[in-house]
Design a protein around this nucleic acid. Structure first.
Lengths: 245, 245
DNA sequence: CAATTTTTCACCTACGTGACAATG
DNA sequence: GTCATTGTCACGTAGGTGAAAAAT
């Protein structure tokens, strides 16, 4: 079961070693990488697709948005709530896709919360390194992505720690700045191809938020408490033991 | 950013759309799949490897083994303890690998525990469908596999439920039968290729165990309690509140 | 009956919440 | 002083333990 090492382009024990194919493959030797990439490109585009993206929990996002969504950022990283979850249809079931998200500054302002209102408080701090977060199940077939109840990015946490050790899983944001999450579909069979392929980007304006280290708007706090199961301990439920100060 | 649908083999907007390459690729159209597979095959074997596999927590496994390891199986699935964890070296850093495990019957006997001893109690029950468990991070490069502290299969639980709904994540075993876990390295760039490639199998005899629905040997119970953090509540720690009946 | 399996439970691990006090 | 940030905490979710009782 041992293979001959160090002889590029020839593999006498391979399952497809017919002379004709070997000849053809030799012809392509110099352009091999490009040809393979091209063949894959074509293969991936033999059949069309027409992706539709839907935001999960859209009504909840809108309720937050009406009050001015805030997201807490911490040194160790904090999840978003509501979560970043999409539902995708219209993919080609056989083709492979990578799902990607990022969180971009919405403008170049710094904000402050004053008299129960968010207002501009100057120029934005220097932009932090921009990161893309590749969904850990990438790549997967269109069928697999469409069959799941949602595509969730809950493992990507928000932090303000520039020296964050989980650099590849967290989004680094500036506090008191406004952000817009984005969702990208990239049709390719391997994550290494992501940055050389077409990106199809979807943006939900109701996901806009301001990053904070502590909640400013009490209405937002209450919405979080009332809807996030992990904050159930702070709910005001008749039998409750917690009261407002 | 829209692509022309329904025109197979032609993609006017692709990054590699030079006429010469298009011609070559058209030549290969019928053998395309085979050629791509062949090119990948060659690519994957350009450089040699010589994998070494080590069992994590070997000393603990050996301590269990000296007393006759038992693993509880339940309807909903139970983890193994000690866990099935390996550490791999000697892979080719650039090549891609899939990591696979399975759990095979060790013999064709049924056992019973009698007078503090395991003894043969007849012929084995009919063998259950044999499953392979592919590590969920497969495929990944040799570098990625070698860099992690261990390759763990803790998500593969043991069950005796033939109609188990998590069919692809659980191992279905017969109670009172003896088993041997195995570890397999398969060099390939996609899980779909696993069953057509060479398997390199490692077997640690100290991992042998008998599946049970309730522990038989009290020494095994104590080893589990003393070493599994989730069973800490049953430890006999001076301040302990639990005593033997 | 005896042996094995299933169910339920208290007690853990692990970690996601906002409140609040301390810090800068 | 003011405001923003950090650390700690009680209280949740989620799920992995063997014991013990109940069921087969």
């Amino acid at each position: 079961m041992h293979r001959l090492p160090g002889i590029p382009g020839i593999n006498p024990y391979g399952p497809f070693s017919t002379p004709g194919l070997n000849h053809l493959v030799h012809q392509l030797q110099q352009q091999q990488a490009a040809a393979v990439a091209h063949a894959e490109e074509i293969d991936e585009n033999l059949e069309p697709d027409d992706p539709k993206v839907e935001l999960v929990d859209k009504a909840l996002w809108e309720e937050f948005h009406r009050n001015g969504t805030e997201m807490v950022i911490t040194k160790t990283g904090r999840r978003m709530f509501p979560g970043f979850k999409t539902k995708v249809s219209g993919l080609n079931p056989k083709a492979k896709y990578c799902m990607v998200m990022d969180i971009r500054p919405k403008d170049d302002c710094r904000y402050k919360y004053h008299n129960s209102c968010w207002m501009v408080a100057g120029k934005a701090d220097p932009e932090l390194p921009r990161r893309f977060y590749i969904h850990p199940d990438s790549p997967a077939t269109g069928e697999q992505w469409m069959n799941r109840p949602s595509i969730s990015f809950h493992k990507c946490k928000l932090t303000n720690n520039i020296a964050d050790p989980h650099v590849y899983g967290h989004a680094i944001l500036n506090s008191m700045h406004k952000y817009q999450p984005r969702f990208h579909i990239v049709r390719c069979s391997d994550t290494s191809q992501i940055y050389s392929r077409q990106w199809r980007t979807t943006c939900f304006p109701e996901m806009e938020f301001i990053a904070v280290t502590a909640y400013q708007n009490e209405k937002i706090t209450q919405l979080k408490i009332n809807h996030n199961p992990f904050a159930k301990g702070f709910r005001d439920t008749g039998c409750g033991r917690r009261e407002k100060r």
